[in-house]
Design a protein around this nucleic acid. Structure first.
Lengths: 338, 338
DNA sequence: AGTTGTCGGCCTTGTTACGCT
DNA sequence: AAGCGTAACAAGGCCGACAAC
């Protein structure tokens, strides 16, 4: 088309013809087989460069029965955690030569089964499940999948590989921070308890609170949204008997602070607040939010490492925990002295 | 393997054998060809159901030279706008029977060329470019791509299809709001001007400000981050001679409010702030942020509609603009009277 | 007689082109 | 002409055969 003949996409045999070898030699060069003479390899690579040849991934997937694709099922992809995790998985996957196809569950009309259908129809070598509710995990447990499955969750699992940020340790950081400021009456605003992360934080909160002798009380169960936090805080018409809150994510924490403020209370003077996530805006909230940061980039890398090992038949780390980090800002202070 | 013979994935010929037809008939049933007797179609569909047969997408892509995949290049995928757009494109694509492969530009070591390389190596039927800088668009303009390309940007383009939220109209809403509150001295805090959206908002701001007789002044050019907004606001040790700011995105607006607050100024009493995006937390910021909302869901649908039409050879809408919406909250009020 | 390097043929699964009733 | 079939093809990978050193 462009004057020069053969501007169509070259295939492996054209490369072979020009290099004066068989198509299999080209294939071996491409796949780094050992038994190729150096001069042959160079010649082939030159022709590949010259023609700007790129192997056709569909043909490759068909012949090798390997798609080099990782399927990702992501629950509530609009939440910060899941979204960040997904992006980090995508990045790590690409760097490992894999592509990613993701399907969002949650608000869509999309069950785990359907999502899995879509992905297996696409042809995936491995499956990663992000930020799942326990119900999603249960469903997946009943399904025959045929490829390695990794679930991003904190607890060890008999069926799946797991990788996660250490929710327990992150929660400990938060509770220890409050306790060392002197708080002995702390409310936990949890996420929906069918979410594994929410459950893990809730359990860890109770356990750590107990060991500090923090007054045990009923927790509040939210839905991750700032709206919930706001509505809840607006119900507090008088100062409650606790002096701090450990809120399961930053968004709810924002809502809580907003609601408290509208009711005439001040953070941290009247109540201290610790969040979880460290959103980009958290340090610019009024007041800047003390929160627990999760290293999603590391998470994505561990995920891809593990799945890749599983796919390629190498030694697989059965479970990986990534440490969390506490960022102390201005939403926490000593308890009020009334 | 599992006792029953043939627990492996069935292929089209096995379906054909059991249904007593040729594999071509099965193919025709799958692709809704017209000339198939109803009874044959039913029989084939029954066998497909029974075997739980799913066509192999790699084989399909190889034979048909169509991957039913849309490649997406997304600039700064961590920003809210791009991220939301990407998710909406993914959703719309899946509903249209397409899959999506996305590559993030920006902080990564990844040029538009490389991204395009990756995607074309994967085999895509169409390309969508999200939230691009003008430099990315220029680069792409020089590249022969071979598939329909849609760029999400506000201006018409000779080379590419375009779809976008109407930045000009959205900006008008913001400026009109401030003007009708009485503001005649407004500062624009822009995004990086090599970003098409930032540039569009800046142009629209100037044009609309002029028609209201708003005092012309140098704009401030930021980088979309809350950190920038904060640093800028901290430089304002005394009240400036303007009474309102139109900030090009909510994140910077958060930073600005934070910085103003630390300098002892109050929003909106001393200065009114309008943002752009409507993040989930914007309504819970202190004060809740007046902002311009973009309908990303509609955006994704239009994108996929247009690309699909282009791929399948139907009538293509060359350019689509989606209206924006102003949300008036509490970060804006009448100008201070000093 | 072994290694090392290369070749041709057949395989993957579905679609396109054409042809026969 | 509606309804279906056969052959060729898409772009690679696997494997046995065989030549060269």
């Amino acid at each position: 088309m462009a004057g020069i003949a053969g501007s169509d996409k070259p295939n492996i045999r054209q490369v072979a013809d020009i290099a004066g070898v068989s198509h299999m030699t080209v294939s071996r060069v491409l796949n780094n087989y050992p038994n190729i003479r150096e001069s042959t390899r160079t010649r082939v690579l030159e022709v590949i460069e010259e023609l700007n040849y790129r192997p056709n991934s569909a043909a490759r997937a068909l012949a090798s029965q390997r798609s080099r694709r990782i399927g990702v099922i992501v629950d509530s992809s609009s939440e910060n955690g899941p979204a960040s995790t997904l992006r980090s998985v995508e990045l790590a996957a690409r760097q490992a030569g894999y592509s990613v196809s993701s399907i969002a569950l949650g608000s869509d009309v999309m069950s785990p089964q359907e999502a899995l259908e879509h992905l297996t129809a696409l042809g995936i070598d491995a499956l990663c499940v992000i930020a799942p509710r326990s119900s999603s995990v249960s469903t997946l447990r009943t399904l025959a999948i045929g490829v390695p499955v990794l679930v991003i969750k904190a607890d060890r699992d008999p069926t799946f590989l797991t990788v996660a940020v250490d929710q327990q340790q992150g929660t400990r950081l938060a509770v220890d921070h409050l306790a060392s400021l002197g708080h002995r009456d702390v409310l936990h605003v949890a996420g929906p308890l069918d979410w594994l992360d929410a459950r893990a934080r809730e359990r860890a909160f109770h356990s750590r609170a107990r060991s500090w002798g923090i007054h045990e009380r009923a927790i509040v169960i939210g839905d991750w949204t700032a709206d919930f936090g706001y509505d809840f805080a607006r119900t507090l018409t008088t100062l409650p008997d606790y002096t701090a809150m450990f809120v399961a994510n930053d968004e709810m924490a924002f809502g809580v602070i907003h609601g408290l403020h509208e009711n005439g209370f001040s953070v941290p003077r009247d109540i201290s607040i610790v969040g979880f996530d460290d959103l980009a805006v958290s340090r610019h909230f009024l007041p800047p939010l003390t929160t627990v940061r999760q290293d999603f980039a590391a998470l994505g890398e561990r995920v891809v490492e593990a799945l890749r090992a599983a796919v390629e038949g190498n030694e697989v780390p059965q479970r990986t925990a990534i440490p969390a980090e506490l960022l102390v800002r201005q939403s926490t202070g000593p308890p009020r002295t009334t």
